[in-house]
């Protein structure tokens, strides 16, 4: 069986570090792992998605509609955008942050209201938390990605030390303690 995790957000939010961390942890567990992302144009504040797949042998590098076990989202609208990619019994872990896209800023479109409720009404399990506030509590607004990974880890049976050693490998030493705090705040939220 292949496990499928999507990490979604807005270009510039730090989704790449989150997928790097997750990739490390899964590889360390002995899985075959594939992590896919699109570079280039979408980095400029557009909608971004990273696919993380793991299992005994992973074939396709991408996750398709109805296949994701988890969607980890940095932003509410992005969680809603990628909802069709979730398995009907899948889990969304999302920050409650709202970032308005340009069509909303210019008034050409509306940002849907009550998104968490609507995602739940559609049948998704939704774990929504204010990751920005938790990241700031840990010491930096930029640690949202690690807060989210901490929250995701809550759903896996893996040993916490695996996550912490992966954090040591992907973040610079001077930010290590901050990121460990962010991870714990997310996990225990």
């Amino acid at each position: 069986m292949t496990g499928n995790i999507m990490i979604v957000g807005v270009g510039g939010q730090g989704t790449l570090l989150a997928s790097k961390l997750l990739g490390h942890v899964l590889l360390e567990q002995g899985y075959d792992v594939k992590v896919s992302e699109v570079h280039g144009m979408s980095q400029r504040g557009g909608s971004v998605v990273t696919y993380v797949r793991y299992g005994e042998k992973v074939a396709s590098p991408v996750i398709d509609r109805g296949e994701a076990d988890f969607i980890v989202s940095f932003e509410l609208l992005e969680a809603a955008r990628w909802l069709p990619y979730l398995k009907p019994q899948g889990q969304i872990v999302t920050s409650t942050q709202r970032l308005e896209p340009m069509p909303v800023i210019t008034g050409a479109a509306e940002y849907p209201d009550r998104l968490v409720e609507k995602l739940r009404a559609a049948g998704a399990k939704v774990d929504a938390l204010d990751c920005l506030a938790l990241a700031e509590r840990a010491g930096s607004a930029k640690a949202v990605n690690i807060v989210l990974m901490g929250r995701l880890s809550h759903y896996f049976g893996m040993d916490e030390s695996l996550w912490l050693s992966a954090i040591e490998q992907v973040v610079p030493p001077k930010f290590l303690e901050l990121n460990k705090r962010a991870f714990a705040l997310g996990k225990n939220a």
Partner: peptide
């Protein structure tokens, strides 16, 4: 595979 949707239109987020 079967998948979930919500009725609201989702505004695009172009770069």
């Amino acid at each position: 595979p079967r998948f979930l949707t919500i009725p609201d239109p989702i505004p695009p987020r172009p770069p």
